[in-house]
Write a protein that binds this DNA or RNA. Sequence first.
DNA 1: CCAAAAGTGTTATCCGTACACCCATGC
DNA 2: GCATGGGTGTACGGATAACACTTTTGG
Lengths: 230, 230
Amino acid sequence: MRVLNPNISVDCVVFGYAESELKVLLIQRDASIANDRSLLSWSLPGDLIQDDEGLDDAAHRVLQELTTLDNVYLKQFGAFGDPARVKKPSDKIWLQKTRDYPEARVITVAYFALVNIMQFEPHPSNFAVDVQWLSFKDLSHDLAFDHEEIIQKGIEALRREIDVSPIVYNLLPPKFTLSQVQELYEVISGENYDKRNFRKKILAKDILKPLDEWQKGVSHKPAQLFELSE
Amino acid sequence: MRVLNPNISVDCVVFGYAESELKVLLIQRDASIANDRSLLSWSLPGDLIQDDEGLDDAAHRVLQELTTLDNVYLKQFGAFGDPARVKKPSDKIWLQKTRDYPEARVITVAYFALVNIMQFEPHPSNFAVDVQWLSFKDLSHDLAFDHEEIIQKGIEALRREIDVSPIVYNLLPPKFTLSQVQELYEVISGENYDKRNFRKKILAKDILKPLDEWQKGVSHKPAQLFELSE
DNA sequence: CCAAAAGTGTTATCCGTACACCCATGC
DNA sequence: GCATGGGTGTACGGATAACACTTTTGG
């Protein structure tokens, strides 16, 4: 297929939440073309934009191929196009193997996505030989291209967003406890909140519905479960 | 000059402030190539990105060419790439006249800029036959491409920013009155503020320095002038 | 003297924060 | 019965919001 915009891509910073940690979904590019292990650095899922495709559509497509999920929360948070973003030798090699114009700098439009980590099983796809949830707090420092910077900007965008919009519930299962919500807010913001004040504030928003269900199998007082209203 | 990214541009929403109104700097594309008046719709200043140029650099360059100003406050606020963004016949003609790949959709990275409107005189340049400050509140509805949407998104980004960062002073002359500051905040946000509370809040930020100078030639009590500290 | 905008303080209300104890469960 | 996290209310302080009159100047 002919691509008229050979050097514009989208990349998705897919956030998940498990084991009290924020996770990022990263892939390993298919290096079989090179049989070169150095190409196996982790990178963000992304793809070139197709000619007839909007930016949001491209991001949704990437996510759909990777996770089989539709209707994922996605938000554009920036475009990255530093000419120096391709500085690692392994990145250069990879571009030469896969791109029509390897010498052209690629400009990428970045999105962050929020998914409930239980909703799918990461599996290799046609553009990724390996797919894994990596813990945000100990991400390796040799991600491909400038993906480390993009992830950093992504979490900053996420932090700005959670105060103003109830998007964090995309990271939780349909039924959750208030302590889970609090812990999630704490992990994202890096701050600790007082339990009573947090519950007061979050219930005042009037978007949570208490259920007649409680945690089971925990060796302490079971917590009540909630869901998003409507 | 060969451009490896023939279809990525930057566009700048340049805001200015005069006569108690927010203004946007718009240009008219050079239509001499077509002798076609329909190409004379207003559009945002912008240009294709050069191969060796970062996105921010490209935006600064566009602004520099247009205003002769360096060091302008610039902030990226979004990328736009709807395939339907080229829907007006006049836009299509213009692309055919000026682009190597007119059939390719152009993706643009948008910036907003804040300038003191007195700092330069708009003048035609090599890419604009006319340059004018147009009042934001009565912008025409047939701007080129999706520039109307971009401007709308630009002011939303500006609104988000003014609460958190003292960037509005970029729109004012070096010396200003508190009433000017208040009016500017009101124009941008669309809200009205109480005079006493506003002054209290803004002086509490401790970034304004009162001068030993007062307004002259006004037929009422002259206001004290302030400047940004440091 | 009149019009027009500058300048100034106090009070009430709301919101964020700090803080400690009892409860239900599994083992 | 003990360890573990669940669940609850109140009091304080700071920030925000409401509000009206006097001052200075030009015409």
